[in-house]
Design a protein around this nucleic acid. Structure first.
Length: 601
RNA sequence: GCCGACGUAGCUCAACCCGGCAGAGCAGCCGCCUUGUAAGCGGCAGGUUACGGGUUCAAGUCCCGUCGUCGGCUCCA
């Protein structure tokens, strides 16, 4: 979710835009320094990021929105003048002298000098040269690059966006600094395009559409991060679930159900109370025993497995559950449907033999892509998270096998993916698929994870061909991730214009006069009988107002019926795009709609 | 959790800065209109100003706390 520092491999760091933003960050820091008496403002770092830049400050007081205006105005002044950006390389001693009032810069210099870490505290491969850049009267420790002069930046193409808190070096044990986010472009026109894009993103925000389209709400009386699904949102979720469940059954899965709570000892065996304690809610006492709300479904599926002795002939077992879990998430991270405290995963666990594992991985990944395609989702980033030698359960050889299988599956599916080196959980490597929301923030949906831990902890076995006991492989996977997050992503992906098969209301009938109402009701019954979700707008509004309501409700088909249609036994469809179709018979309309509904698979 | 902003009718907002009768549009309800592709007309109703405390003759407005939301940070098995 963090703003990305670099765009991947498209030369952003070499681009003019990168230099413009980097330089704008310096000009902003200069303006902020000027607002405070000598020595009171401390500066940290100020890099370009995707779509803009930021700079972190340690200031004697919080900045206000009015401050931003003042800073922006000062920046424009500087940018309308001609100040050269001058680079100079220097020794650590000299740099320390120049930044003697700047403790954060001192720390940076120490990191650079020791050859240890860069400005984010990340280890460096080689010892860097220490350099400073100066424009006007402002000097910053900086490796560059910058524009040649402030006059290369269009003063009208720079805008400060907001001020936010950020920990020094991204560590919550460090002091919190004030970060000003800004954006800069090559021209005012480009800036305006970007700002329009932000506005458009606000219109697509699932939280706004969730309210406007009456899909869901949350209530302070119920609690943060606990979703109330209204009928229309519940319909979207139901349709998504129904489609997925059918596909699971058609792809070799069986459905299971499990309870919402389990005894303390279960969570001790699973290790959750040791490793996942922070995210679990306080126990409930029942008959002098402690029970915990489940943060995951795995232990229950494992207990189903353990209820029987399994032969290699039984494997693979693929057990799926729409399992509702509860996790404590820190209050500041909750976000609409995307990050909540109670959610339903489309969870499944696959138990298989080591020999079956590569094929199972292949099948899961292909199934996953098939399901996402069914929802019209193609834009995602794939990650392969590999072993962190510092914290990993199970032998290295099994990790290597599993990681190879994951990589092979990604290759066979011809997916572009990034390796998240050492990013695996301690119990096994995984593939993650992350989608982007309206503001290009990434949200993880699909995950396919190996687990080398739970089968050991629960002593899972199957009897092999040789008559001996063997340890099965266990794969966790969720394809949509959670229904909450997935519906959130769907809302933003479609901007509320759900494809016909997912639209909670597929058609609204619009009689032009009350005379037409009996005929309209008859047609609505016909459509309903064919499975179409149709409503009749029998209000006393005029047709124009009814159309307006339907457009605001993003209803795919508006079926206008006046005397002409009634006499001809037709309806006049209008699509939410504004397109008007020629009047057609109910049969033709049904053919068209049913075909459109089927087309998603 | 941390930093900052914000919380007024179902929704969007005004009144807040500078304390003095809480107001509009939309939605809702009632009535009239019977309408041809994005708002017909009139009326009615709608509020413990998130919650709790404080200052004051007087608090939506100022102060403190709690809850919630938003933007970031951190976190995200």
């Amino acid at each position: 979710m963090a703003h990305k520092e670099h765009e991947n491999g498209n030369g952003y760091e070499e681009s003019k835009l990168y230099r413009i933003r980097h330089s704008a960050a310096h000009v902003m820091a200069q303006a902020v320094m000027d607002m405070f008496p000598e020595g009171e403002a401390k500066i940290a770092i100020g890099p370009p990021i995707e779509d803009g830049f930021y700079y972190d400050f340690d200031l004697p007081r919080p900045l206000t929105p009015e401050d931003l205006e003042v800073i922006e105005e000062k920046m424009r002044e500087t940018l309308s003048e001609d100040h050269e950006f001058k680079r100079r390389e220097l020794s650590a001693e000299e740099a320390r002298e120049i930044f003697k009032d700047q403790p954060y810069k001192q720390e940076l210099i120490d990191g650079l000098e020791s050859g240890g870490v860069d400005e984010h505290g990340q280890p460096l491969d080689e010892k860097p040269v220490i350099s400073i850049y100066k424009h006007d009267d402002f000097v910053d420790l900086c490796r560059g690059p910058h524009v040649k002069s402030t006059k290369e930046i269009d003063p009208g193409a720079v805008k400060l966006l907001n001020v936010a808190g950020a920990y020094w070096r991204g560590d919550e044990h460090n002091p919190m600094l004030q970060r000003i986010y800004g954006t800069a472009w090559e021209s005012q026109e480009a800036l305006e395009r970007y700002l329009d894009k932000l506005e458009e993103a606000k219109r697509r925000d699932h939280r706004k559409l969730g309210q406007d389209l009456d899909l869901y709400s949350t209530s302070p009386e119920v609690g943060s991060g606990l979703v109330l699904w209204h009928p229309k949102g519940a319909m979207v979720r139901h349709l998504a679930e129904e489609y997925c469940k059918d596909e699971h059954l058609a792809h070799g899965y069986e459905l299971v159900y499990s309870p919402h709570i389990g005894k303390k000892s279960l969570w001790e065996t699973s290790g959750h109370l040791t490793w996942y304690d922070e995210n679990m809610y306080s126990p409930i006492e029942i008959d002098e025993e402690e029970y915990f709300l489940k943060p995951m479904n795995c232990p229950f599926h494992i207990m189903i497995y353990k209820n029987d002795l399994h032969s290699y002939r039984d494997l693979p077992l693929r057990w799926a559950e729409w399992g509702t879990v509860y996790r404590y998430e820190r209050s500041g991270v909750l976000h609409g449907l995307m990050r909540v405290r109670g959610f339903t995963q489309d969870d499944a666990h696959i138990f298989c033999s080591p020999e079956q594992m590569p094929e199972e991985i292949d099948r899961v990944l292909n199934f996953c892509l098939h399901i996402l395609r069914g929802f019209g989702i193609q834009d995602f980033h794939a990650y392969l998270a590999t072993r962190d030698p510092e914290k990993s359960a199970g032998e290295k050889e099994r990790w290597d096998n599993a990681t190879d299988a994951l990589r092979a599956a990604l290759d066979r599916a011809e997916l572009d993916y990034e390796i998240d080196e050492g990013g695996a959980a301690f119990y096994g490597p995984k593939i993650d698929l992350k989608m982007i929301d309206a503001l290009e923030r990434e949200w993880q949906l699909s995950t396919i994870q190996f687990d080398f831990n739970l089968p050991d902890r629960f002593d899972l076995v199957y009897i092999g061909e040789d008559g001996d006991q063997h340890r099965p492989y266990m794969i966790h996977r969720a394809l949509l991730g959670s229904m909450e997050r997935f519906v959130g992503v769907l809302i933003e992906h479609y901007g509320g214009d759900f494809p016909l098969w997912l639209a909670p209301v597929q058609a609204v009938m619009i009689p032009i006069t009350d005379r037409n109402l009996p005929y309209v009701k008859e047609v609505a019954e016909q459509l309903r009988a064919a499975g179409i979700r149709v409503e009749v707008d029998d209000s006393s509004d005029r047709m124009g107002a009814k159309i307006r309501d339907a457009e605001k409700g993003k209803i795919p088909y508006m079926l206008v019926v006046g005397d002409r249609e009634e006499e001809a036994g037709t309806v006049a469809p209008r699509l939410r795009t504004g397109e008007q179709l020629d009047p057609m018979s109910v049969e033709d309309l049904l053919d068209r709609m049913l075909e459109e509904i089927e087309s998603h698979q």
